[in-house]
Design a protein around this nucleic acid. Sequence first.
DNA 1: ATCCTGATTTTTTTT
DNA 2: AAATCAGGAT
Length: 815
Amino acid sequence: MLSVMVANPHAEHLQELLEALNEPQREAVTHGEGPLLILAGAGSGKTRVLAHRIAFLIYTDQAQAGEILAITFTNKAAREMRERVERLLGHGTRGMWVMTFHAACARILRAEAQRLGYTRQFTIYDQADARRLAKRSADAVGVDPKRHTPAALHNHISAAKNGLLDAAAYRRRAGSQFEEMVADVYDVYERDLHRMNAMDFDDLLFRTVNLLELFEEVRERYRESFRHVLVDEYQDTNHAQYRLLQLLVGGGRPPRRDEEPQPGDRPTYAGPLGHRNLAVVGDDAQSIYSFRQADIRNILDFQDDFPDARVVKLEQNYRSTQTILSAANAVIANNRGGIAKRLWSELGQGEQIHLRALDDDFAEARHVVGEIQRLLDEEQVARSEIAVLYRTNAMSRALEETLTRADVDYQVIGGTKFYERAEIKDAIAYLSLLANPADAVSFARVVNSPRRGIGQTSVGRVLAFADAHGITAWEAAARGEQAGVGAAAVKALARFMDTMRELRAIAGLPPVGDEDRRPGEAVTGEAATGEAQPGEAALAPGAPVGDLLEALLAQTGYVEALEAERTIEAQGRLENLEALVEGAREFDASAPEGQDTLDAYLQQVALVADADTRSDEGLITLMTLHNAKGLEYPVVFIAGMEDGVFPHSRAIDEGGLEEERRLFYVGITRAMRRLYLTYARRRAVFGAQTYGLPSRFLDEIPPDLLDASSREGEQRERAFRPGALAGGFAPAGRERIAARAGGAGGWQRPHAGAAREHAGEAAAASFRLGEDVVHAAFGEGVVTGVEPGGVIVVRFAGDGSERKLMAEYAPVSRR
DNA sequence: ATCCTGATTTTTTTT
DNA sequence: AAATCAGGAT
């Protein structure tokens, strides 16, 4: 090692790079070629190790920037990784692939899609689009929609894809009538996707694996190109991702029993070994994505895959106090199996953990907010140092309302997404349809939005006609009459198509019909090898995406229709669209050399959830426990510590307790100095009151780690400013918890969600447009809309927000 | 084709 | 509590 350093022109940098590391970290960073497994406990500096390793590989000339593929699970993690590497190198990382699995696959497929019978403009369907398509497929097959929801069907298909089973392979394994039916739906779903030149999220992985298995030349090219592959959060990889990595680095093992090929399956590639320069980092105790088919065995069996792998354990935690670590260790000890790790910290015992019981979800929220206010005022804690975590997104509501009321600024990570709003999805669907005329889902979405007099029936006829004749929705729309569409709708369709053709011209796209191969006709085998240079732009660059969007919104009449509504809600939608255009302009400005900007833009929009767009400094952060993985905060609240909420009732039913416990472990270990746990005896779920018991996980925390008032049985709910709501009296957890922990068998735990009572009293006040109202949480506002079903829209003066409320039940009254 | 109303569903977690 | 869906009225 030393000799390398001395001979190296970057010797100074190198030394600096390595000095800042502890011994095992340094071992991982300086490991040379060959497989490397880094078992990194929570807070042990794994991101740091990855970033340093990348810098080390470059400084020691073991790799060029362009020869590194570093994979993360979220875009946010990717961005952070890139920034850290740039800081270490002191310059940019051009050519380095630092991105999510999905983004890397999309990029490879963009270049190679033609080999699989797709054009490079293929559309990426998000979850909602995929579900819609699954519903259509289910209808086509004649599935009873009452018995099987599209979501459930799509989940099965998704699981199959992540297991690398296509429809035929899935059918071969079908062992029940239900699975036969899923196979039928899968068949149609898969065929339609391909016909529409579209892929869902799972396809991005599956098709890339297909590509690398099928085309030796492509496989070799990417193998050579990525001399070193690094993977973060390896415990959360699924089978498709596992297989992808094996193909890229050349390694692997015989199939497991549940992966045995069946007669009729396409043979999988098992060729010569590759460079095997694969470095993975992970922690089996933090595996929390099995619902996405993550397979914890990937990390547990890494040494079977690579018997010569070097294994490094990182056990020193730099984040949390010993009290917090002890709690985390005690909790996770209740799981069976797993790789033994002893996390330790030099940060001292620190403060004990605070546990509080509250009467209901709003009392819980008031307690949390009251404590936050105290920390801000009395202890000079910064807002950015505080996070509130919860199990499900829906739980943010009580917290948000209470924070708003207390005038504490906050941000929610995840949750309702910008790109999921109807007007944004419409605009994106227009772009998708322009780029990919075969995209029937987008076609169906926008053809009558704004209203053009093309209703469900007409759209259905067009799509059925396209289906019957094996043509695209675009082509079918141009032949409305033959499709049996009524005369008025034919005219409307023609006008719509004219508009779309004009927009295609503005986008710089050629007229539809001759620019690309019809999707669905795969170019297979040898015939394809050698043609089509990846990365080469086939089309002339068109107008910038921002301009195109603006033109589109104007020419389709979309903006006009919204303006005509003259409601504040429509005003909000217009503002959202302006924000979208603005974002697109920023994208244009930073896009490299104008080529294929539309495709690149659509890809980014599809793959970048705004959970990872910016997170403002200076705000309290609210998010789900899942979203918190990889983050750390000096002060962490975990709310909703009740059985049925956390662990979630579905997980209890389906035997997912160990994963829930890992999720709790993740939550605890986010905290650096201070950890608060709260639960509510009563909580509104789906608008009905539910009674819950304290989470069984609370019993697993050694009582001496809890602070005195947590243990001593009673304390007052913290006074809540302003407007001092009734401070509830809370005889707290200890007796009940201790009683249960002590008494073997304890008391019977009612099935979660069993106890419910009806909520709300009547007094149906009818509100009228323009009336001044006051809301218990949001304050003063004005009625800006009255909708059917007793829904009113209120614009609040406090924060300018607009919210839909149930007039009958919401705490609003006339002012 | 579109609007209106009542019924049903939603809540795991995400690329 | 609020969103979505289905069926019926216009």
